[in-house]
Structure formats: C-alpha cells, structure tokens
Design a protein around this nucleic acid. Structure first.
Lengths: 222, 222
DNA sequence: TCTCTTTTGTTGTAAATACAACATACCTCT
DNA sequence: AGAGGTATGTTGTATTTACAACAAAAGAGA
C-alpha cells in the first residue's frame, strides 16, 4: 500500500495531507484495497454502494447500457482517479452503470460513513478530507452545469458560441486557446466534426470570430 | 429571522437539525440576511462569492448571457431554495451568471469557510450541515450526469430512449409514469415538441414502447 | 351537456445535421 | 526534401429536425 502514497498525495481528495499522515488517515477510514483481474467486474447496474473508489493501479471503465442493448463507454479511469463519489455521498446509492477493470487493477475503497464521521481520535486530516470531497463534488457540479448549458442548445452554431463564450470568460479575454482539437471539440459538443468545421467557417466568414487550430478570438459584435 | 425557521427546517441543507437548534447554528455560521428590492441585482457575472445563498422570501432568477447578448433564464429559485453552492464550495469562486431578485426578496447568506470550519464550541449540528451539503452536491451531480447522458445523444429518438430507460430503471419496472407532459419532456430533452411526439408515435408503431399521456411501457425487444 | 382551454398528435416544408468522400494543410520522422 | 500520417476544411446527398399550422382528444368550468 505504502508505494501508492506518492500517487494519493497528488490527488485532490488528499490535498493538504502529507504522505506521512496518510497512514493514520487510511487506518481511521478502514480503507481497504481490492484487486481485480483484467475484465473483472467491479460493480454492476443495481449494485448498492457507499464506497468511494480510488484507482491505485490499472484502469477501469464505466459502461452504460440502454434497454436496446446499446453500450456506451462513459469514462475510462486510470491511476489516481476517483469514481462512485456521487453515489457514495448522495441519497441514491444504486449504481446505474457497470464498472469493469480493463486491466489488472487495484482499487482503494473508502466507506462514505467512515469518511463523514469524524473519528474519536479527532484526526485533523479527517476534516481536510471532507473539505476536499466537498470541493471535488462542487467542481464537478460546475463542469457538468457548464456542459449541460452547452448541450441544451439546439444547433451546432449555438453550441459553439456557448462553448467559446464560456472559454473566453474563463480566459478573461476574447482571445484564447482551447484544450481540444476539432474532433475532440465535436465530441465534447456532441455534434458531427465536419458539420462543426463547416459552421466554424461560416462564423469566420460572418466576422463573428477568428479560428486557427486551438486559437480562437471572438470579435466584437455590434 | 425566527419566522423563517419552519422554512429552513424543511430544507435538505438543514435536514436533521431541529428548529430550536437553528439559533445556535446560524449564529455559529454568522449567517446574515440581505434584503433585495424587486429587480435588484444579487450577483453579476464575474463576482467572486464564497457564500451559499438561501432564498427566504420572494424569488430570484439566474440568468446567463452569451457574447452576442442572448439572455437565457437558467432557473427561478423560490423560498427554501439554494443557490451558489457549487461556487462557494468549489475551487472557482467566479460566478458565470447574473442573479436578480424578481420580487422583493430576502436572502440568507452563509459563508463557506464558516460552514466547513467546525466551531470551537464543537457544535454537533455543524457536522450535520456539512454532511447535508455533501449530500446535496452529490445528488445534484447524479441529476446532472443523467441529464448529460441524455443530451449527449444525437437524435430525438435516442434521447427519448435514454430518458425512458433511466426512468424505467428508477421505477424498477418497464412500466412507469413520468413527471412531465409532452411540452415539458421536450424541454427537458431539448428537442422540438412536435418532432418528439412524432418520434413517440413511430416508436409505438414499431412496437418498441407503449405511451399514453404520462404512462410509458418499454416493450421487450428481441 | 356544451363551451373553452389545454394537451397531444399529424403533416408538409424549410432548414440543419450527419455522413461520406475527398482535398488541403500541417506535422514528424527519416 | 520527401513520405506518411494526422488534422482540418469542403462539398453533395440522404436523413433528421424545427417550425408552423391544424386536427383531434382530453380536461375544466359553467
């Protein structure tokens, strides 16, 4: 376990907690590690879980299936990433997804109740952990909200403008770089790449923006 | 202030906290109420806030503007509803929205730092408050995730199936009621009502589902 | 029951998108 | 510089959607 401490230390969940303090904290949480073979099932739809999972090694996939049998990979989580936190901390503990190990993996399982119950030994890191978890959920909330706002737009054009407006706001300037290439941007906006590229061209022709690779500039619209 | 205690008691944020315990808690939080006239501004885009707002009376509107000047009302929050929690608890405290009072309103402002710092008087309700906030953020996360999963689908048909599959899962049965009428469902799925109604008809014709008003049934697809 | 209103379903048309196929530009490696 | 690969832009076509307008059904109230 100890060899994972440098990894844990870098995680937002353990932010502000020193490597030598992890021992006491993990003990206090009675956190357990579980090992999974490649393709083993970590959770299935309908499972009830009050555990926050931390991928220590390997990787897991979060997969959703609809009733027609269509499978969608929602996420691939690698070492240092967290999963299940919304179901551990929320009212509804029933998982709507399957979680598989895509490689031989090791997962740290943290019980939600142990996490929120400050220990009798009044371990100070415990409070820090709760604060971190609050921050993680809040940050995710912001991200999800922003994405919904974009996906709520009907047209590719509107989605683009919503996304670029948010990026400009984040950058504090009408001129900014985005962290996606065209295909990734199209995937994020849930639209067709070529249709999107076409729309970018039109917006450029109309003098609404400049776009070159990752660099965008929103032009004053009067 | 005291006259709002029955309202507060019913809120998820103060769940498990008795009315007569609120006095001490709010004092401990140094929570302040602010009054706003009709149409007064509560927050503007760019404001930095570490406060969770609770609408005590009246109502506020959360409004977003893109750089072309298009205004979108994201939410209307009435008495007993919470806002700003993701920006109070998250890393990013900069608000991307405007908040207006749509009526003469009274807002309770709770400082995030006071909330997560357990008080020296070791007030037990404080821990309950933090747990509640964690739960609220986690629940919202689940809701937002589910919505994104639906909005990520390209076609109206796929959105419908994704939504109905989730509802069936939630109900634990292929036969269930939905909390929307057609227009509300279309709004939730971000599609055109008539196009959606059309699609429901097609799905019915194809024997994939039954639909009558609020009642749906997903039929076994072999 | 009758009227009025709301909700839902249907249809045709214009507009937007997805898809496929290809052209062009850019990057990296040798 | 040249080759191969990747990213981006462009175009035509089939499909899907939005929109508008209307019909039918359901619900509410007199």
């Amino acid at each position: 376990m100890k060899n994972f401490y440098p990894l844990l230390k870098k995680m937002p969940l353990f932010n502000g907690i020193k490597e030598n303090e992890l021992d006491g904290l993990l003990q206090c949480l009675t956190a357990k590690t579980k090992k999974f073979d490649k393709m083993a099932t970590v959770f299935v739809v309908g499972d009830v879980s009050s555990f926050v999972g931390v991928v220590l090694s390997g990787a897991v996939q979060v997969v959703k299936e609809d009733f027609l049998g269509n499978r969608t990979i929602l996420a691939k989580l690698e070492a240092g990433e967290l999963f299940g936190e919304a179901f551990a901390c929320g009212k509804n503990h029933i998982l709507p997804v399957n979680v598989y190990a895509v490689e031989k993996s090791e997962i740290l399982m943290i019980n939600y109740r142990k996490m929120i119950t400050t220990c009798s030994s009044s371990c100070v890191f415990h409070n820090k952990l709760i604060e971190n978890m609050l921050g993680i959920l809040a940050d995710k909330n912001q991200m999800l909200n922003q994405k919904i706002e974009i996906l709520s737009r009907r047209s590719t054009r509107e989605k683009l403008i919503a996304y670029l407006t948010a990026q400009a706001q984040k950058a504090g300037s009408p001129s900014f770089m985005i962290p996606f290439n065209r295909q990734e941007l199209a995937d994020y906006l849930c639209v067709d790449r070529s249709a999107m590229a076409n729309e970018i061209s039109k917006l450029r022709d109309e003098g609404i923006l400049q776009a070159e690779r990752n660099h965008f500039e929103l032009l004053q619209h009067n």
